[in-house]
Design a protein around this nucleic acid. Structure first.
Lengths: 149, 149
DNA sequence: TGACAAAGTTAGGTTAGTCTAATATTATTA
DNA sequence: TAATAATATTAGACTAACCTAACTTTGTCA
């Protein structure tokens, strides 16, 4: 199912918070995203309806398995782009973070996979002391790519 | 002044159309963006209010000088990102086009300048037959960058 | 030159995402 | 354990971006 960028942001926020604190409440999400409580209540209602979240009346919020899968995909995209901005373009961490938020939504997996492969190739290349023109430039022409984190 | 991504899209569309056809009407914009005429009328009204467009009642649409400046900046960002996706990641033209649309809004000029410099460095490097490790990797650590198109 | 087609506008409705104010529930603690 | 604080929800309003239907203006050509 397709989510708006905003809804994806909420899912991602909940995922990130889940790894930092034991239970995630509406107010945690509101604080993190800089919006008011009713805004979160309504966003969470939408995500519950789509089956991405569980929450009892007045209770804490948890990701369903499909919600978690979605959140992981979004978070991966975010990390990949941020890594590119820091490692390849040399941006400061905080700028990279905010720029990644603007670029991360709705990209195809082809684009993200190619970006990952590219980053890894550049980093490997940088760490070795060799001229790695071949590895580096052949990647542009390969149409199917695999990756691991 | 800060524009929404949608408003930026309209400005960019008008700019692109201006270079293809002699006069740009509401219906040209609507056709190009795949929306209805009233939607364009109201978007154009908003952009006129902000001083980016001129249009007489029932007339054609033209960019003001500030509108053109804005549009050029947006279009440059688009071209830069698209070039990266095609030349560096090797995406197909049509995918690169649509992915660029998703990534182009609200990026800092620092990010865009660094991206431009990076693309040019890679392309130069690819065209020369030398090991250009130095040029390539030192760019990551330079904090101020210039560029030309 | 007047009728018809094309282009543009207005009116009014929908949805998503936000807010404030008021209310309800849950948790803490004196 | 009752009062208070913290948390969550509801109600109601606003804006941006879209739509359809109806209307107005402009342009064309028979």
């Amino acid at each position: 199912m397709k989510l708006s960028a905003k809804k994806e942001d909420y899912l991602e926020t909940i995922y990130r918070l889940s790894s930092e604190i034991d239970t995630v409440g509406i107010s945690d999400i509101a604080r993190e995203r800089g919006v008011t409580l009713p805004t979160v209540t309504s966003a969470v209602a939408g995500l519950k309806e789509k089956g991405y979240l569980n929450q009892r009346y007045y209770g804490k919020v948890t990701l369903t398995s499909s919600g978690k899968a979605k959140a992981v995909a979004i978070y991966e995209a975010h990390k990949t782009i941020k890594k590119f901005l820091i490692e390849i373009l040399g941006l400061q961490e905080n700028l990279a973070e905010s720029e990644a938020c603007k670029m991360e939504h709705g990209l195809s997996s082809e684009t993200l996979n190619r970006l990952k492969t590219f980053i890894n190739t550049v980093i490997d290349c940088r760490e070795s002391k060799n001229d790695c023109r071949t590895q580096f430039f052949t990647l542009v022409n390969s149409s199917k790519m695999t990756y691991d984190d």
